[in-house]
Amino acid sequence: MANQPVREDRPRWGLWLADSGDGNGYTLAYRVHHAAQDGSAMVHTLQQLLPPGSATAPVRADPAGEWSLEPPHTTHRLLAEASVPLEVMRTAARRADATVHDVYLAALAAALRYWLPPDRCQRPVRVRVPFSTLLPADRPDLGNRVGNMLVALPVDEPDAWRQLKLLGSQNRAWKASGARERTRRILDRLQETLVIEQMSADEPDDVLGCASSFRFRVPMAVAGDRVTAVTALPAHFGGHLFSSALCTYGNWASTTFTARTNQPRVRELPALWERAVRYLSGDTNRTASRQSFPAPSP
């Protein structure tokens, strides 16, 4: 589904219902063109569509209409995921006077250090980290008001705790720089077609990937059935080796990685990321060595 192009003559969003096949649940998939909604708008829309007090399924506006067929299967992208209790990430954040977002990026840096070839870990690697420029007066469910900061992941630092400290300092300095406000002023002058072109453009060669994050603040339900888990499938931009997304919902945090199928080793990253998060939250030694994480496959 995610690999299908968004047709210009159809709505830029869609919903798909998939049966789990075992009778124990089902999946509701929501897809939207990134130029029509950014991550904040997507989260807001889902929380409005799926309120916890909803006891019945919504009535179709066109009862005579037909459900669309299942999208054709494609094999352009792979998806891999790891989940940890949200409290595990909060514990790591409290110990380092950091944020959950800092822990997400630090665990990504630690995972990449043990995943990348040694010669790629001689200096930091850059990833694109989207951020919202939404203002209180903005309509929260429509439009793309997202900018991108380039974060230097310190894969050259062998100490996972030091990686977390470095990223926390980097993120605090960025927040104090006024970059969010400057980006918003630029976005206010851009037309939608230019936003689409920018999102389709290749990144510089030294940008390894994209690292997004989404936070769902309220419980959700579908026709009275409680939503038990939320997984984000991040957009995979041209020129990136991978894209990742942290999604927090209820008591759980999940991180997904997507990449083109010609990069199968990306499937190793979720387990490495989870190992790093648990290390940061529970190891009092605070001295990371290459033996602290699984060695990458040859």
Results as ranks from 00 to 15, higher is better:
D9F: 08
N24V: 13
Y26D: 00
L28A: 13
H34K: 10
D38L: 13
V43F: 00
V43D: 00
T45A: 04
L46P: 03
P51T: 00
S54I: 02
A55F: 02
A61P: 04
P63C: 02
W67M: 09
S68K: 07
P72H: 11
T74E: 14
H76S: 14
L79S: 05
E87S: 13
R94Y: 06
A98F: 12
V103K: 06
Y104F: 14
Y104T: 10
Y114E: 09
Q122I: 06
Q122T: 09
V125G: 03
R126L: 12
R126H: 06
R126F: 02
V129C: 14
L135Y: 00
G143Q: 07
N144H: 05
V146M: 14
V151Q: 04
W161C: 11
R162I: 10
L164S: 03
L167F: 11
G168C: 04
W174R: 07
A179K: 10
R182F: 05
T183W: 01
R185T: 10
L187M: 12
T193K: 10
V195S: 03
V195N: 03
Q198G: 04
A201K: 10
D206G: 00
L208H: 00
S212N: 09
P219F: 11
P219N: 08
P219G: 11
M220W: 03
A223Y: 00
G224I: 00
D225H: 14
A232Q: 05
F237Q: 06
H240R: 11
F242A: 10
L246W: 12
T248Q: 15
A253P: 11
S254A: 15
T256G: 03
T258L: 05
Q263G: 02
V266H: 01
R267S: 11
Y279R: 12
L280N: 05
S281Q: 13
S289R: 12
S289V: 06
P294F: 06
S297N: 12
P298S: 14
